[in-house]
């Protein structure tokens, strides 16, 4: 089957039970997408499928055939996007393990316009972080949204 990941087309033939997260990490070596739990509760594996955030650990690889997948590697290849830079500069990441999923979740939010603080909390409510206490993540997303708005 054909699969579009980060604007590149791949030819793959995963078995039916292959999860998208494993296909990305083990077969395509796109290891930026993380696995933190096994039941869809942590959000570290979040990717965009046709622009919407989705848990790649709850998605069969075969079922994204023909759809557009964006992983953290495809967010802004080669340089940091405004959001990514904001997370780094604000201290919105520490160990970095939740960061790819967090960025994808925030990206989906920012695409819909300038969010309120509550919108931000809601958008990342499915993404666990054990390091930051979320405070600086929320600040970073707010900052990126403002910069985006004032562009």
């Amino acid at each position: 089957m054909k699969l579009r990941v980060n604007a590149l087309e791949y030819l793959v033939d995963p078995p039916a039970e292959r999860l998208l997260v494993d296909l990305l990490r083990e077969d395509l070596h796109l290891t930026g997408t993380k696995r933190g739990c096994d039941d869809g509760s942590c959000g570290a594996c979040t990717v965009l499928v046709d622009g919407a955030p989705q848990h790649s650990c709850l998605t069969l690889a075969r079922l994204v055939s023909g759809r557009d997948v964006t992983t953290i590697e495809g967010v802004s290849p080669g340089r940091l996007s405004r959001l990514q830079r904001s997370l780094v500069e604000t201290g919105g990441l520490q160990c970095g393990f939740c960061t790819p999923g967090m960025i994808i979740a925030a990206l989906a939010l920012l695409q819909r316009g300038t969010p309120s603080r509550d919108d931000i909390l809601e958008a990342i409510s499915g993404n666990f972080c054990r390091c930051t206490g979320y405070a600086k993540i929320v600040q970073a997303i707010e900052r990126a949204a403002q910069e985006e708005g004032g562009r």
Binding site: V49, Q54, E122, S125, G126
Partner: peptide, 9 residues
């Protein structure tokens, strides 16, 4: 229900 990414699917 759940979180936003879950609600997509």
């Amino acid at each position: 229900a759940a979180g936003p990414a879950l609600r997509t699917s």
